[in-house]
Nucleic acid binder design. Structure first.
Length: 633
RNA sequence: UGGGGAUUGGUGUAACGGUAGCACAGCUGACUCUGGAUCAGUUAGUCUAGGUUCGAAUCCUAGAUCCCCAGCCA
């Protein structure tokens, strides 16, 4: 999803085609959607971003290639979550793979639920994920659109359907419509469906002009009250809502229903493949009906009584991304925000894209995850360890290393002179082959009093415990080999400090070589440490999954019952002073610097940080095979 | 009880009438100054029952299980 030249030119080529790609390739073969004209990808509808690329390096030559146009159509009624990421990756990935274009379009047809804040957050998240929609910055970008910009056009189409006898104004209340809905065997009823066209035209005009109160009447499509598909039982096309709209303000008091609007939006933007989730499969016949109804009496050259035919996209449905140990519906996410179960939409425990970003997840990792899980129609549950693995994978290669101690235990090096400080070489990232020589290193201070992790010392260790214990040797990462000589305890018997001696011949952590060129002894364990007098203090937030069960609510029916009460733990840690001096939060990107605290995991700077106060999030731990080993016994 | 979908190892996904493959997880081992990473090896699968065929995950028939649909939400 990054630029086509910056990484492997055909990153997807090795993988077999998913079923949607197979459809696209078949369409491209048959020429179903025609070819791109020489003029480029500008669409005929209003676009909020420049339609012409602003910089030649951000454009590709599309002329003569098969047309592929996709879109991501969110409703701005909440923040985007990891499920949306799949749709963004899929739609943008298709545009990229087939030299097509990708639109971001807000499906903003319900002013009672939608807000500008959500519009802004969605734009931010889509950009961050790499779904470039702005033609001045991305070669596959088709522009930014709003369904509400088409309200006039949709209204005209609706009037056309009334005139064609395919829609009527219905005076039934919502409750009455519901009551008359019928059952699979019993048809619905509607008293107004044979109302004269002129009457419906007059009422619809009155609806538009604000003559009637909310809920008093609707415009309905005249399809089939007996259809076994309830979506076809004369669905509502317009309802009256006297409400301010974030985009159109007070221009309208009738708003199109999703089912009426969505297919038209795709049509107007000349979307070729309208990709949506499985639950809309039942709606596809309705979308097809709407387009066909508009096209009735229209012709390819516009010579008919109703003008030129409109574009008829193909809808394709795929299974949602459904992770375990979380909820995903915007209603539930909103409830957690409102009930203050979390600190906000971007609380790092949330499954939202903004939360993942705040937690330290990278867009590369998210894209890799979506590539890994694939696209199909099988409703499956994705184990979140896949996300963690994707994050580890990317961060392992890119994150600079540092040391920090989360639960400190004091260590005194008895044979190290008081006041002496050694500046040792520290390898920034052994996995990063780009770094070499001196640029691959920095300094880390060592002194007589250190902190190590409480877990890294045991007074009575079990077998296979390779860390520090009385009489044992251990390597301090990039520093010295030390041997534990004893412990100091307080009155209650708790260990207050560990006493050690160091071996001066092991500076840098290297073991001296014998005459045979091999190390003269072996040390099993290497542990991390910080120098007590040099360490900086930081607040570190450790996260666990938000829910205790894979499918929240599956047992009791109430998903809130399964909230994990200990999903957040805050510790005061000692960290490498270099991190404290250099790590920053970048408000412009909405990201904090990321790094690995060795043996602990990946961490990033949180936005709550301020000059005197560093706050870090643990993105994900490192794999811990010792924990598994310890659990066995 | 109407309509629309789905069903391949623990998980996800290929195979489009011709050797059931890949990834993740698991397990074994190697290597290692992160019990990390890396490398090598390995366990494990076609919902069921019939049928067509030289040959079926794939085609046919019947059944099972799961998901979606009766908002003036999207």
């Amino acid at each position: 999803m990054s630029s086509p030249t910056s990484d492997n030119p055909t990153p997807d080529a090795a993988r077999s085609l998913n079923f949607i790609e197979q459809i696209v390739e078949a369409d491209n073969q048959s020429g179903r959607w025609g070819l791109w004209p020489a003029g480029g990808a500008a669409s005929t509808v209003a676009c909020r971003t420049p339609s012409k690329p602003g910089d030649a390096s951000h454009s590709i030559s599309r002329a003569g290639k098969p047309r592929v146009r996709t879109r991501f159509p969110p409703e701005p009624n909440g923040y985007l979550h990891i499920g949306h990421a799949k749709s963004i990756c899929l739609n943008h990935g298709l545009a990229r793979r087939y030299d097509g274009v990708f639109n971001l379009r807000f499906d903003d047809t319900n002013p009672t639920k939608e807000e500008q804040e959500y519009v802004d957050s969605i734009i931010r998240d889509v950009r961050w994920l790499g779904g470039d929609f702005d033609p001045t910055t991305g070669p596959y970008a088709g522009g930014l659109y709003f369904a509400s910009d088409y309200f006039r056009q949709m209204y005209d189409f609706a009037v056309e359907l009334i005139k064609k006898g395919k829609a009527y104004v219905c005076h039934l209340s919502a409750e009455e419509v519901s009551r008359r809905r019928g059952t699979p065997q019993i048809p619905a009823t509607s008293p107004d469906r044979d109302r004269p066209v002129e009457q419906s035209l007059r009422f619809f005009d009155e609806m538009r002009r604000g003559v009637h109160p909310d809920g008093s009447m609707t415009l309905r499509a005249k399809i089939d009250l007996a259809s076994p598909n309830f979506n076809m039982r004369d669905p509502v096309m317009y309802r009256i809502v006297h409400e301010h709209h974030h985009n159109t303000g007070g221009d309208w008091c009738i708003y199109p229903m999703y089912d009426w609007a969505h297919g038209l939006e795709d049509s107007l933007e000349e979307i070729t493949h309208s990709i949506c989730t499985l639950e809309f499969e039942n709606h596809r016949p309705l979308y097809d009906w709407f387009i066909n109804a508009i096209n009735e009496g229209r012709t390819d050259d516009g010579s008919g009584p109703w003008g030129r035919k409109i574009h008829h996209p193909q809808q394709i449905e795929f299974a949602k991304f459904r992770p375990n140990y979380t909820v995903l519906s915007k209603r539930n996410l909103l409830k957690m925000v409102q009930d203050k179960v979390v600190s906000g939409w971007d609380d790092p425990r949330m499954p939202t894209i903004s939360a993942l970003r705040r937690r330290g997840c990278t867009p590369e990792a998210l894209r890799k995850l979506m590539e890994d899980v694939g696209v199909s129609k099988v409703e499956s549950m994705i184990d979140l360890v896949r996300l963690e693995n994707a994050v580890r994978d990317h961060l392992n290669k890119t994150a600079p290393r540092a040391m920090a101690v989360l639960r400190p235990l004091k260590v005194v090096i008895e044979n190290w002179p008081e006041g002496k400080v050694d500046q040792l070489d520290y390898v920034i990232n052994p996995e990063d082959l780009e770094r070499s020589g001196e640029s691959a290193k920095r300094k880390v201070p060592f002194s007589r009093v250190l902190y190590i992790e409480q877990d890294d010392f045991m007074e009575n260790p079990p077998k296979k415990f390779f860390r520090l214990a009385p009489g044992n040797e251990v390597r301090l990462r990039w520093a010295y080999i030390i041997r534990c000589t004893g412990v100091t305890k307080d009155a209650s018997g708790a260990i207050t400090e560990v006493r050690c001696t160091y071996d001066p011949a092991t500076r840098g952590g290297d073991i001296p070589l014998g005459p045979d060129g091999k190390p003269i002894r072996k040390v099993q364990g290497t542990i991390h440490w910080v120098s007590a007098e040099h360490a900086a203090s930081a607040e570190i937030r450790l996260f666990d999954r938000l829910f205790k069960t894979e499918e929240p609510g599956s047992a009791t029916g109430n998903w809130m019952d399964d909230l994990n009460p200990s999903s957040l733990e805050v510790v005061r840690a000692f960290i490498d002073p270099h991190v404290a001096q250099t790590a920053r939060y970048h408000a412009d990107r909405g990201e904090g610097d990321r790094f690995q605290f060795e043996r602990l995991g990946y961490f990033c700077v949180d936005k709550d940080s301020s000059p005197g106060k560093l706050v870090l999030n643990r993105t994900v731990t490192l794999k811990d095979t010792w924990a598994k080993e310890a659990a066995k016994s």
